[in-house]
Write a protein that binds this DNA or RNA. Structure first.
Lengths: 193, 193
DNA sequence: ACTTTTATGTAGCGACTGCTACATATCATC
DNA sequence: GATGATATGTAGCAGTCGCTACATAAAAGT
């Protein structure tokens, strides 16, 4: 009764590895079991069914992501600085598997499928809180609305990058309200006049 | 050789209906065939394989979406007006099946799967052009960058709505640069002073 | 009328899906 | 050392997946 929970946790972590590398399409019982060095039979011995198993695994993934995000971007910044900063963070290699999984979750959640809808919602709440905590606002009442707007834009760049349109992301980020202190930005080579 | 293409087109339209209603997860050969009143055998008689069949079907879906979007939102508007306008359009009921499919495409594209990556990319290009055409800018050089930023934010609200966070969308849209001419918006009941 | 092309039905293959029945180990407790 | 709980292997079920071999019907062309 004690080692059982420990074994479950160990399996969950190994399954999290596997899901992060191949995504939900590859998250069927036999491949998952193989990634854990066990059998589908044993997975269903430790978990009631695939749903419970996946819920636990995605929970572990969410925990890793939370940890990863919390470690990133210390300090606060105003909207116009924070947006490109977060977008750059989301474009970094370590985020890729999480964001691929995130889009798969969003697609399933969009069809109201449980447990994905619930999990994706909680992840979204986490994203918002994380964003809000790093946002510098003049009026405190603007924090959540501004963070929501920022989050939406970031999510959008994630989608655009997913469909291979990094150019659009770059164009969008070049089009900020221009409040960040970036002295060395060549606007245009200032034609001779 | 003549009726063949007509039959293909008819099948494609019926499959588009089906895909729009159940999404890519339900787009396997036998259900698709049933939706067309035929058999999987016949689908693979008119199409080389499932990939070709799905490409054609998603092309038809894209055409419908283009038509649907082109009919919507005549006239141009500046960024701050256009953003909530488009978001409201995306939240409308007729868009739902398209956006659910769009997220599924984005998730598959994110894993570099063809033909989804190509199709999603083309759809994204269409979105950007559509947005840019409705955007009112002061400097023409800002059109594409600003449209990209707008598109990203819109896509983000689509994701947030997919995961059941309409509240975040509402909060984000309340947090616009506030340039739209909306005289009857109660900011706050202006406390007595 | 004969042949060739076009269209359709039937049946099935091998692989995979989530899940389960049954048997058996291993091991702690009484 | 018998007994019961915990753990694991083997085998398989009923279903779906994309796809194909084989037969045949209808139609078109000669």
């Amino acid at each position: 009764m004690k080692g059982r929970d420990a074994r479950r946790q160990a399996l969950v972590e190994q399954m999290a590895d596997h899901v992060l590398s191949v995504g939900l399409p590859g998250a069927s019982l036999r491949p998952l079991a193989a990634a854990c060095g066990t059998s589908d039979r044993m997975l269903l011995y430790y978990f009631a069914d695939k749903n419970e198993l996946l819920s636990a695994t995605l929970g572990a993934v969410a925990a890793r992501l939370t940890q990863l995000l919390d470690a990133a971007l210390p300090g606060v910044a105003p909207y116009a600085v924070l947006l490109p900063r977060i977008c750059r963070l989301m474009a970094a290699a370590p985020m890729k598997p999480y964001l691929q999984l995130w889009l798969e979750l969003a697609a399933l959640a969009s069809r109201q499928q449980e447990p994905y809808l619930t999990i994706a919602g909680q992840l979204g709440d986490g994203f918002l809180a994380w964003t809000a905590a790093r946002l510098e606002v003049s009026r405190e009442a603007d924090r959540l609305p501004t963070a929501s707007l920022l989050l939406a834009t970031v999510e959008g760049t994630v989608v655009l990058r997913a469909i291979g349109r990094e150019t659009m992301v770059a164009a969008a980020l070049g089009q900020l309200p221009d409040e960040e202190p970036n002295p060395a930005r060549p606007r245009r080579p200032r034609k001779s006049r």
